[in-house]
Deep mutational scan, measured.
Amino acid sequence: MQVTWGNVTVTFSNPEEAKKYAEKVARKLGGQVELHNGQFRIK
């Protein structure tokens, strides 16, 4: 499962870890987490 924002992509084998990481990054950037085609995207 991947977490992407800007031109950065981070890949996780565990979807739960990916979700936690995406939420943490979104909080830092003041963005929203979207699940899109099996990727968490931060907008």
Rank of each mutant, 00 (worst) to 15 (best):
R41L: 15
N14F: 06
Q2Y: 07
S13A: 12
I42D: 01
F40H: 03
L35V: 13
P15H: 13
E16N: 10
N14V: 06
F40M: 05
E23D: 10
Y21A: 03
L29N: 04
E16I: 13
K43R: 14
T11G: 06
F12S: 00
E23H: 11
K28Q: 12
G31K: 05
V3N: 00
M1L: 12
G6W: 12
T9H: 05
K43C: 15
G30T: 03
A18C: 05
S13T: 13
L35S: 06
V8F: 12
K19R: 15
A22E: 00
W5M: 05
G31T: 06
Q2W: 06
R27F: 08
N7R: 11
F40S: 00
L35C: 12
K24P: 00
F12G: 00
R27Q: 11
L29W: 09
Q32A: 09
V25W: 11
R41T: 13
G6Q: 06
N37Q: 07
Q2F: 07
F40Q: 02
V10H: 07
G38W: 03
N14G: 06
T11F: 14
K43S: 11
N7C: 15
V3L: 03
G38P: 01
V10I: 14
T9Q: 05
F12N: 00
M1A: 10
G31N: 03
I42K: 01
T11K: 09
K19P: 00
K43A: 10
N7E: 08
K20P: 02
Y21G: 00
I42E: 01
V3C: 05
K24R: 13
W5L: 07
L35D: 05
V8E: 05
V8Y: 13
I42G: 01
V33D: 00
E23L: 11
N14D: 12
E17T: 12
T11P: 04
K24I: 12
V10G: 01
E16C: 15
F40N: 01
Q32T: 15
K24D: 12
R27G: 07
N37G: 08
K19L: 14
Q39N: 12
Q32P: 03
A18M: 02
P15C: 15
K20E: 12
F12C: 09
N7T: 11
Y21R: 01
R41Q: 11
K19Q: 10
N37W: 03
E17Y: 10
L35E: 09
G31C: 12
A26P: 00
E34R: 05
G38H: 15
N7I: 08
G31W: 08
G38R: 05
S13C: 15
W5P: 00
Q39K: 08
K28S: 09
G31R: 05
V33I: 10
K24A: 14
L29F: 11
K19T: 04
N14S: 13
V10K: 11
A26W: 03
S13N: 12
M1Y: 15
V3E: 00
T9E: 04
E17N: 09
V33R: 01
K20D: 10
K24V: 10
Q39R: 08
A22R: 01
N37K: 07
G31I: 06
G6R: 07
V25N: 01
F12I: 04
Y21K: 01
I42V: 09
K28I: 15
G38C: 13
T4I: 14
E34N: 04
V3H: 00
N37T: 03
K20W: 11
E23A: 08
T9M: 07
M1R: 10
G38S: 04
P15Q: 11
E23T: 08
K43V: 15
E17K: 11
P15E: 09
K24G: 08
A22D: 00
A22V: 04
Q39P: 00
Q39T: 11
K24F: 15
P15S: 12
L35K: 06
E16R: 10
V8M: 11
Q2V: 13
A22I: 04
K19G: 05
V25H: 02
K28W: 15
K19S: 07
I42S: 01
T11W: 15
K43L: 15
A26C: 06
E17H: 11
Q39A: 12
K43P: 05
N37R: 05
S13K: 13
A26L: 03
R27H: 09
M1C: 15
E17R: 10
W5N: 03
Q2N: 09
G38K: 05
K28D: 09
G30H: 09
P15R: 12
H36M: 11
F40K: 01
E23N: 08
E23C: 15
G38M: 04
V8Q: 08
T9Y: 05
K20S: 10
N14R: 09
E34A: 05
V25P: 00
G31P: 01
V3I: 04
E23P: 00
T4D: 01
R41Y: 15
M1S: 10
R41I: 15
A22H: 00
V33A: 05
F40E: 01
T4Y: 07
N7F: 08
I42C: 05
G6N: 08
H36I: 15
V33F: 05
I42Q: 01
T11L: 10
A22S: 03
R41C: 14
K43E: 07
V10M: 11
A26F: 02
F12V: 02
T9P: 01
K20R: 14
A26N: 02
A26I: 03
E17W: 09
M1I: 14
R27S: 08
I42H: 02
Q32H: 13
A22T: 02
L29H: 06
R41P: 01
K19V: 06
E17P: 02
N7P: 08
N37A: 06
S13P: 10
L29G: 03
N14H: 08
G6P: 02
Q2D: 08
E34Y: 12
E34H: 07
T9A: 05
K28Y: 14
N7Y: 09
I42P: 02
K43G: 06
Y21P: 00
G30L: 05
T4N: 07
V8S: 06
F40R: 01
N7Q: 09
V33L: 07
G38L: 04
K24E: 13
K19N: 04
H36A: 09
M1T: 15
K28T: 09
K19I: 08
S13H: 10
E23W: 12
Q2I: 13
I42N: 01
R41V: 15
G6E: 06
E23K: 08
L35F: 14
L29T: 11
A18F: 03
K20I: 12
A22G: 02
W5R: 02
V33W: 07
P15N: 08
E16L: 12
T9D: 02
Y21E: 02
V3Q: 00
S13D: 12
G30C: 14
R27L: 12
E16Q: 11
E16M: 12
W5K: 01
G30R: 08
E17C: 15
N37H: 07
N7V: 08
G31H: 06
V3F: 06
N14W: 05
Q2H: 08
I42Y: 02
Q2A: 11
E23Y: 14
A18V: 02
Q2K: 14
W5Q: 02
K28A: 14
T4W: 06
N37I: 04
R27M: 10
V10Q: 05
T9N: 04
V8L: 08
L35M: 13
T4K: 10
G6K: 06
L29R: 04
A18P: 00
Y21L: 05
G31F: 07
W5E: 01
V33H: 02
E16T: 12
K43I: 15
S13Y: 08
A18S: 02
V33G: 00
V25Q: 05
R27Y: 08
R27K: 13
T9G: 02
H36E: 12
H36K: 11
G6A: 07
K20N: 10
N37M: 06
A26Y: 02
G6Y: 09
T9I: 11
Q2G: 07
Y21W: 09
K19M: 11
L29K: 03
K24W: 15
G30W: 05
R27V: 08
R41F: 15
Y21T: 02
Q2C: 14
G30M: 06
V3G: 01
Q2R: 11
W5F: 09
M1N: 08
T11R: 10
V33E: 00
Q32N: 08
H36P: 00
E34V: 13
S13F: 09
K24Y: 15
N37D: 11
N37P: 04
S13L: 10
G31L: 10
P15I: 14
E34G: 04
R27P: 01
N7K: 11
T11M: 11
F12Q: 00
N7S: 11
T11C: 15
V3A: 01
Q39Y: 07
E34L: 07
M1P: 06
G31D: 02
A18W: 03
G30D: 05
N14K: 08
V25F: 05
N37V: 03
E34P: 00
V8K: 10
E16W: 12
T11V: 10
V25I: 14
V33S: 03
V25A: 04
K20H: 10
F40P: 01
V3T: 01
M1D: 04
L29S: 06
A22N: 00
L29V: 12
G38Y: 04
K43F: 14
E34S: 07
K24S: 12
